[in-house]
Amino acid sequence: MNTLYLYTIVGVGLFTLGLYALLIHSDLLRKILAINIMGSGVFLILVALAARTQGAVPDPVPHAMVITGIVVAVSATALALALVIRVRTKVGHANLPEQSLE
């Protein structure tokens, strides 16, 4: 069991955990956190898989992908948080109702 697989498994674990949290919580802030945890899981997997052969210099392309991914995730989170604030002021609470239209 080398560390590479450990990272990968942790990544998959984070992804699953995030997915679970996303589905069962109705609070929006928790959902956003859950999404971010999922994202971290994916990035972890990407970085872990970049080291293809033991000891060699890791492949730089996944690192570039992770950086891009982090940028996207940050902006997505910013947008999500802005929306949460708006939802809260309009609706009064930061939950998703079951049926939003009629």
Partner: peptide, 18 residues
């Protein structure tokens, strides 16, 4: 309505993308 459905839409989008 628009805000909550936008929120839901955002979450779905991020989930799908991940």
């Amino acid at each position: 309505d628009a805000l909550t459905s936008a929120m839901r839409y955002l979450l779905i989008n991020l989930l799908g993308s991940l």
